[in-house]
């Protein structure tokens, strides 16, 4: 499961896109992990994530904070999305101090997350990169659409929904912000970045021409 990998875009856009998440190692540190993941989410919440959620329950644009916190289980995967590198640094410092014993993964532009680690006196242990897309590229939507769909790694934000939102914004039925939130809701885990989506829609909407 590599749900936060394969987010597409240029450096400027991806530099506003950080995810910090945790999960238990099954059979190794699973016992008591639900409580520790609650503490993890508590630390994330102090830094005002633009989205957060638990793969078991849902994201904060659909479920209440109370419901997400109460339902954390040992099989949970807890995520928070941030747009500012400084927040990531502060979170990593706090997580290091809290010593929860839970694995923590940061997704973002690698050389920037490297800096975040250094500033918080941590070192990367294991890394993962995307090798890109192979196969029948003709089946894919335009890259501008993919930049919006790939922020949900489980494919819960389809290209059709992005197109629908673009039309609604174009016709004045939704603001850019409302359109971005509509795209955020189906991404159950809470890893979709609504702020980045709004920026991408702002760039994309003027380029689209509606038919009669």
């Amino acid at each position: 499961m590599t749900h936060t990998l394969h987010r597409r875009g240029d450096r400027e856009s991806l530099s506003q896109d950080y995810i910090v998440f945790t999960m238990s190692a099954k059979g190794l540190n699973e016992e008591g992990s639900a409580e520790r993941m609650k503490q993890f989410l508590g630390i994330l919440l102090k830094h005002h994530p633009v989205n957060y959620g638990d793969m078991v329950t849902g994201n904060c644009h659909v479920k209440s904070q109370e419901e997400i916190l109460q339902n954390i289980q040992s099989t949970s995967i807890i995520h928070g999305v941030f747009t500012d590198e400084q927040d990531v640094v502060e979170i990593l410092k706090e997580l290091k101090g809290a010593d929860l014993g839970m694995s923590v993964v940061v997704t973002g532009v690698h050389d920037e997350t490297e800096k975040s680690c250094r500033k918080s006196d941590l070192a990367k242990h294991t890394v993962e990169n995307s090798l890109g897309i192979f196969g029948q590229h003709k089946k894919l939507p335009a890259d501008e659409i993919l930049q919006l769909t790939t922020m949900c790694g489980h494919g819960m934000v389809p290209a059709n929904l992005v197109e629908r939102v673009i039309v609604q914004v174009k016709r004045g039925k939704k603001t850019l912000r409302e359109g971005a939130v509509e795209l955020t809701r189906p991404c159950h885990c809470g890893i979709y970045n609504p702020i980045r989506a709004e920026h991408l829609l702002r760039r994309l909407v003027p380029l689209v021409t509606l038919g009669a």
Partner: peptide, 21 residues
Amino acid sequence: IRKRGRFLSINGKSNVGLGRP
């Protein structure tokens, strides 16, 4: 990978080594 002219994302995941044991 870069030597071969292949795509390698600038972004990705980093495990920061806080898990125990």
